[in-house]
Lab assay of single mutants.
Amino acid sequence: TGYYDVLGVKPDASDNELKKAYRKMALKFHPDKNPDGAEQFKQISQAYEVLSDEKKRQIYDQ
């Protein structure tokens, strides 16, 4: 599964769309709200870390 799929956004998503999707998913799977969501929360955080950084995103998109 790709990072875009993890966040539920298209590859041409804007920074604002990425942030909005990340916040929505992070709230849904945060371990405090969803004890079984810890692994998914890590994936969401990693996806956002890469896609929100312009240089990392360019490398990922290659």
Rank of each mutant, 00 (worst) to 15 (best):
T1N: 10
T1R: 14
T1M: 12
T1V: 15
G2Y: 15
G2L: 12
G2D: 14
G2E: 10
Y3K: 02
Y3F: 11
Y3D: 00
Y4T: 00
Y4S: 01
Y4P: 01
D5I: 07
D5L: 11
D5K: 11
D5T: 10
D5W: 13
V6C: 08
V6E: 02
V6R: 06
V6Q: 06
V6G: 00
V6D: 03
L7F: 01
L7I: 02
V9L: 08
V9G: 08
K10P: 11
K10H: 10
K10F: 07
K10N: 11
K10Y: 07
P11I: 07
D12W: 14
D12H: 06
D12K: 01
D12I: 05
D12T: 12
A13T: 07
A13Y: 01
S14A: 05
S14Y: 02
S14V: 03
S14N: 10
D15M: 15
D15Q: 15
D15Y: 15
D15C: 14
D15A: 15
N16P: 06
N16R: 12
L18M: 04
L18W: 00
K19A: 12
K19W: 12
K19F: 12
K19C: 13
K20I: 14
K20H: 10
K20D: 15
K20L: 13
A21I: 05
A21C: 06
A21L: 00
A21F: 04
A21P: 00
A21T: 02
Y22P: 00
Y22W: 07
R23V: 14
R23P: 04
K24C: 15
M25N: 05
A26E: 08
L27M: 07
K28T: 08
K28W: 07
K28C: 13
F29V: 03
F29S: 01
F29K: 00
H30A: 10
H30G: 07
P31H: 08
P31G: 07
D32W: 10
D32C: 14
D32P: 09
D32F: 13
K33Q: 09
K33E: 06
K33S: 11
N34R: 06
N34S: 07
P35D: 04
P35N: 05
D36A: 11
D36K: 10
D36M: 10
D36I: 07
G37I: 05
G37H: 12
G37S: 10
G37F: 15
A38R: 08
A38N: 07
A38Y: 11
A38G: 08
A38K: 08
E39V: 10
E39Q: 09
E39P: 06
E39F: 08
Q40W: 13
Q40V: 10
Q40Y: 13
Q40T: 08
F41E: 03
F41A: 00
F41Q: 02
F41D: 02
F41T: 02
K42F: 10
K42R: 11
K42C: 09
K42Q: 06
Q43P: 03
Q43N: 08
Q43T: 09
Q43M: 14
Q43W: 12
Q43D: 04
I44P: 01
S45G: 04
S45M: 13
S45R: 15
S45W: 12
S45I: 14
Q46A: 07
Q46V: 14
Q46G: 03
Q46T: 11
A47M: 00
A47R: 00
A47W: 04
A47N: 00
Y48C: 05
E49A: 13
E49F: 12
V50F: 08
V50S: 03
V50D: 03
V50N: 04
L51Y: 01
L51W: 00
S52A: 09
D53N: 09
D53Y: 04
D53G: 04
D53Q: 06
D53R: 06
E54L: 13
K55S: 10
K55T: 14
K55A: 11
R57S: 04
R57Q: 07
R57V: 04
R57D: 01
Q58K: 13
Q58E: 11
Q58N: 09
Q58Y: 13
Q58G: 08
I59E: 14
I59A: 11
I59V: 13
Y60N: 05
Y60K: 06
Y60V: 06
Y60H: 04
Y60Q: 02
Y60I: 04
D61T: 02
D61V: 03
D61N: 07
D61Q: 01
D61K: 04
Q62N: 10
Q62S: 09
Q62F: 10
Q62R: 11
Q62P: 03
Q62W: 06
